[in-house]
């Protein structure tokens, strides 16, 4: 690009100035917020205790930003799990003022509201790993229990694939919403059933079971039914809908579980949602290439 062209594409100076001013405004400290942080190491401590730190926060500061400042400058022993800082990995879910949220997607001032205290706890109904980090072992086991993968019976096709499996947009729309799950654990933590039933599969696993059961490429409906139609399966859900309320990705697990119940009842009457999709023959593939 020549300098002439670069000038053409550059922002006008007044717009550039306004942009810089707005961004400076966003990061200027505006209020002092008190952070109450849950401190507990189950291997060492007898009981948890709370620690308080005061911090000047700006409008754009997220809770995770604040936690990293606290960890860097005030309390190096703080245990917090995070990875991507942009709501994609689901590592930093925690209780922020009593509600499950992603620390990286919640701004401090938004969480504090009119008050000036932000209370941080590890996720409810999860064992504590250390401080704000929860132990996800059982959560992942529950996810694995519903067989979250495509189950097929045509071994010949699987070993020697002749083409991709057929799927229309309508069929894709049946399960797409549930594929957005990032396994942050907020839904299981918010679930009132999970508060007393430790073995309850939970909204995440059940929504994923539904996601695979209605996927037309899948042929594992009858394999998964004994798993979800069990004592700790989908009939334990009583539609408090908190899982959907707290989901940071709009997955709506409550909807998945209710649709799963509908599917199970229909299956009892002999209905099957779909035949397993056939592979597109190689001929079609070759034609498309041309």
């Amino acid at each position: 690009m020549s300098s002439e062209e670069a000038k053409e594409y550059a922002l006008p100076p007044e717009v550039l100035e306004e942009t810089i001013r707005a961004s400076e405004e966003l990061w200027k400290p505006v209020r002092k917020i008190k952070f109450r942080i849950y401190k507990y190491n189950p291997r060492k401590d007898y009981a948890p205790h709370w620690e308080e730190h005061e911090l000047e926060v700006s409008r754009g500061m997220t809770v995770l930003d604040a936690l990293l400042v606290i960890k860097g400058e005030m309390d190096h022993s703080l245990g917090v799990r995070y990875s991507c800082r942009m709501g994609l990995c689901g590592s930093c879910a925690m209780m922020i003022n009593g509600k499950q949220m992603l620390a990286c997607q919640t701004r401090v001032l938004e969480a504090a509201g009119d008050g000036d205290v932000v209370e941080l706890r590890p996720l409810d109904n999860f064992p504590v790993e250390r401080d704000l980090a929860a132990d996800f072992t059982s959560f992942f086991e529950k996810h694995k229990a519903v067989k979250p993968w495509i189950i097929r019976n045509d071994e010949v096709e699987l070993n020697n694939p002749t083409g991709p499996y057929k799927q229309t947009v309508d069929e894709y729309a049946r399960y797409y919403q549930f594929t957005d799950c990032i396994k942050c654990g907020a839904c299981l933590s918010a679930c009132p059933t999970a508060a007393t039933d430790y073995e309850y599969l939970g909204p995440q696993a059940l929504a994923q079971a539904y996601r695979y059961m209605v996927d037309t490429r899948d042929d594992g409906l009858d394999v998964r039914i004994p798993i979800v139609d069990s004592e700790h399966g989908c009939w334990r859900c009583h539609f408090a809908a908190s899982c959907s309320d707290v989901c940071p990705r709009g997955v709506d697990p409550a909807q998945g579980i209710q649709l799963l119940k509908k599917l199970l009842i229909k299956r009892k009457f002999g209905f099957k949602p779909h035949k397993p999709a056939e592979a597109l023959p190689a001929k079609v593939k070759a034609e498309r290439k041309e």
């Binding site: 009593g98 590890p122 109904n125 508060a195 809908a241 908190s242």
Partner: peptide
């Protein structure tokens, strides 16, 4: 404390959530 289960109080912790 290590298990961090809310127990029966978890049924009635409704303040932060929706009307459901």
């Amino acid at each position: 404390y290590a298990k961090n289960m809310r127990g029966i109080s978890g049924w009635f912790k409704a303040r932060a959530y929706t009307i459901e």
